[in-house]
């Protein structure tokens, strides 16, 4: 199970089957320039493969200001 913590807000989502970062972003309705995808202190580009037990943070970057 892939666990994703959303920022801001802190909501936690889980996904049973995702192969790539791009698939994750598609499921979240985000483009890869609208959010940072973070795993273990590194940023992931959209082409990278995900592991079935990944714990990720997705930080949406669009501010209101």
């Amino acid at each position: 199970m892939i666990t994703v913590r959303m920022e801001p807000g802190g909501e936690v989502k889980t996904f049973a089957q995702l192969n790539t970062v791009q698939q994750l972003l598609n499921r979240l309705g985000l483009r890869h320039t609208e959010a940072l995808v973070i795993r273990g202190g590194r940023l992931l580009t959209q082409d990278l493969k995900l592991e079935s037990d990944d714990a990720l943070t997705v930080r949406v970057v669009v501010s209101a200001g």
């Binding site: 801001p8 807000g9 973070i38 970057v61 200001g65």
Partner: peptide, 23 residues
């Protein structure tokens, strides 16, 4: 905005992330 967010993350900047409650 994406580039400044990436910079902040890569430089370990702990920043305020919540939107203004009035915005």
């Amino acid at each position: 905005e994406f580039e400044t967010a990436a910079f902040a993350f890569l430089r370990g900047i702990e920043h305020h992330k919540d939107a203004c409650p009035y915005s």
